[in-house]
């Protein structure tokens, strides 16, 4: 996973949510169909894809899909 585009594809394919690049900076409550179960699955998939552990307190602070992406793939 090398880019935000890859991240969107990952969410669509693995989590099954029909998000687009434009949804990445929406608040989670604005993301169609989003709930905390998707968060668990997404973090699990991100850890597998990146080989990195993501701090759960940081996950809880994340406000958007984009901020989860930046946790998983620091700039």
């Amino acid at each position: 996973m090398n880019s935000a585009e890859d991240f969107v594809v990952l969410i669509r394919d693995e989590i099954g949510l029909p998000v687009t690049r434009a949804d990445l900076e929406l608040g989670f409550d604005q993301v169609p169909g989003w709930d905390s179960l998707h968060m668990l699955r997404l973090v699990t998939v991100l850890e597998r894809e990146t080989g990195r552990t993501i701090s759960f307190p940081d996950v809880l602070q994340a406000q958007s899909l984009g901020s989860l992406y930046r946790l998983a793939v620091p700039a």
Binding site: S36, M39, L40, V43, T44, E47, T53
Partner: peptide
């Protein structure tokens, strides 16, 4: 085989 986040997630949510 759920990964390290699982336990914290269950505790929290």
């Amino acid at each position: 085989r759920a990964g390290g986040t699982f336990e914290s997630w269950v505790d929290t949510f």
